[in-house]
Simulated scan of single mutants.
Amino acid sequence: RQKMTDLLAVGFTDTWRYFYPDVTGIYSWWSYRFKARQNNAGWRIDYFITSKALDDRLEKAEIYTDITGSDHCPVGLTIK
């Protein structure tokens, strides 16, 4: 977690937070144990991190929580 904090501090953008700074309860990974996905007890550990220079070109960031088949779900980023 510290390394992520360090990246953001030196000028990188967490693209999901860029669009959704206050949204909670959206994850990209759930343990296979304890019905974690069913209970939405996960972590957001899949990211698109970009240079601040791209901020004005960011169009959309998505986490496809409805796609199953793995302990992770896909994440997407649209840049113009």
Rank of each mutant, 00 (worst) to 15 (best):
Y47C: 04
W30H: 03
T65A: 10
M4R: 13
A36H: 00
Y64G: 00
Y27T: 02
H72C: 06
G69P: 05
N39Y: 09
K3H: 09
W16H: 04
T13R: 10
D66A: 13
I26V: 15
L77M: 06
V23M: 12
S70M: 12
L58S: 05
N40A: 07
H72G: 03
K80S: 15
F48A: 06
V23F: 05
T13D: 04
T68M: 12
D55G: 08
D14H: 09
G42S: 05
V23Q: 15
R44C: 06
K52A: 15
Q38K: 14
V10W: 03
S70D: 13
K80Q: 13
I67L: 14
N39E: 13
L8H: 06
E62C: 07
D6G: 07
R1C: 09
A9C: 01
K3R: 13
F19A: 10
F19I: 01
G69M: 04
D56M: 12
D6E: 14
I79H: 11
G76R: 10
A61E: 05
Y18S: 12
Y27R: 02
Y47N: 03
I26Y: 01
V10E: 12
A41F: 05
N40I: 11
W16C: 05
L54E: 05
R57D: 13
I67E: 11
I49E: 07
L58A: 05
F34T: 09
K3Y: 09
L8D: 03
T24S: 14
L54G: 07
N39A: 13
Y18F: 15
I67C: 04
I67S: 02
E59F: 02
K80F: 00
S28M: 08
